[in-house]
Amino acid sequence: MQWRNTNDRFGLVTGSLHWLMALAVIGLTALGLWMTSLTYYSPYYTSAPFWHKSIGLVFAALLVLRLIWRAATPSPAHVASHQRWERRLAAGAQWLMYAAMLLIVISGYLISTAKGRGVSLFGWVEVPALISNLPDQAQRAGAVHYWLALGLLGVAGVHALGALKHHFIDKDNTLRRMLGMRLPNATENRK
């Protein structure tokens, strides 16, 4: 499997980023919901947010890397059998997810830095606070962070249902080419 995308399929970089970040979105949302429900005497009361924030910072870096990679390298051609509305819906969902991920990362950072404190990355380095003391900052950023995270899961659900529909109902290569699987009807993708 190649590093870069080809006309037929996604390459190793795009594929790895896609699946790693999919896992991270689910994991971070679950961790975030769980950690905010902990009682004060839970042994994880301070460590769970520490991990959530550290992994979130890594996620932010991956997101930036992904957007640069996406802009700098060509994407595979559309699967020929995809309808116009399917392409539009798919593209819309993708950009919604990128926008949501970007805003979730920024709002998360703004919660922690609302009073001028930095965010620790696994205790190795501290990412400094750049924007602090906006009116109601932690509250508003928190609401944005929470609702966009739930919204992102919703859109990702539609995105996943679409992929499954292509795989099991249309039986095309949409999901296979993101999984690095063999493409049985690869000729159909050539234009």
């Binding site: 009073k115 932690a138 509250q139």
Partner: peptide, 16 residues
């Protein structure tokens, strides 16, 4: 009550 301030962003968010 929104103006509560303990000089810790996440704690203040929790208190609110």
């Amino acid at each position: 009550t929104e103006s509560v301030d303990t000089n810790h962003a996440e704690r203040d968010k929790h208190i609110r």
